[in-house]
């Protein structure tokens, strides 16, 4: 498989997220979602967000991933070229599988967030014996 050249993807701003009090932008992070027999894994691109800035919640089958970027250091540097904007990240998904809430795990690595959502094990079939009275 030949390697592809990476292309510039414009950041998409989140639509209809309500207004924010601070003039900060929320972007939609690019994600990869894949599923195995046991779990669903979500990978999201969140450059500039440290592990502490990530907030993940699963409520009523809606998975919300929010990443707050670290505040920029105040410098007196002059901007010469600006090709990307910085901001926070927000994205929501409706999860159709039954997820074991207690065992959700997340990790942050090089600006990539990985959330592992383990599926709940289906109830074991139980044989019920009928007693003859």
């Amino acid at each position: 498989m030949s390697e592809q050249e990476l292309r510039v993807q414009q950041k998409q701003e989140v639509q209809h997220s309500g207004e924010t009090t601070k003039p900060e932008k929320y972007f939609v992070p690019a994600v990869d979602i894949f599923e195995t027999e046991k779990q669903v894994t979500v990978t999201a691109e969140m450059p500039g967000v440290a592990g502490e800035g990530v907030d993940i919640s699963l409520e009523d089958d809606v998975l919300t991933i929010r990443g707050s970027k670290q505040p920029e250091e105040q410098t007196d540097a002059r901007i010469l070229l600006q090709e990307y904007e910085t901001g926070h990240y927000l994205r929501r998904f409706t999860v159709s599988e039954a997820i074991d809430q207690e065992k959700i795990e997340a990790s942050m690595n090089d600006g990539l967030l990985t959330v592992v959502l383990p599926k709940t094990t289906p109830a074991q079939p139980r044989k019920i014996e009928v007693k003859v009275g």
């Binding site: 990476l6 510039v8 007196d76 540097a77 002059r78 901007i79 010469l80 090709e83 990307y84 904007e85």
Partner: peptide, 18 residues
């Protein structure tokens, strides 16, 4: 303001000077 220019080559960069 400094204009926002869209990059044509990956990765997009921001450049500052002091």
């Amino acid at each position: 303001e400094v204009p926002f220019s869209s990059a044509t080559v990956y990765p997009p960069i921001n450049m500052y000077e002091d």
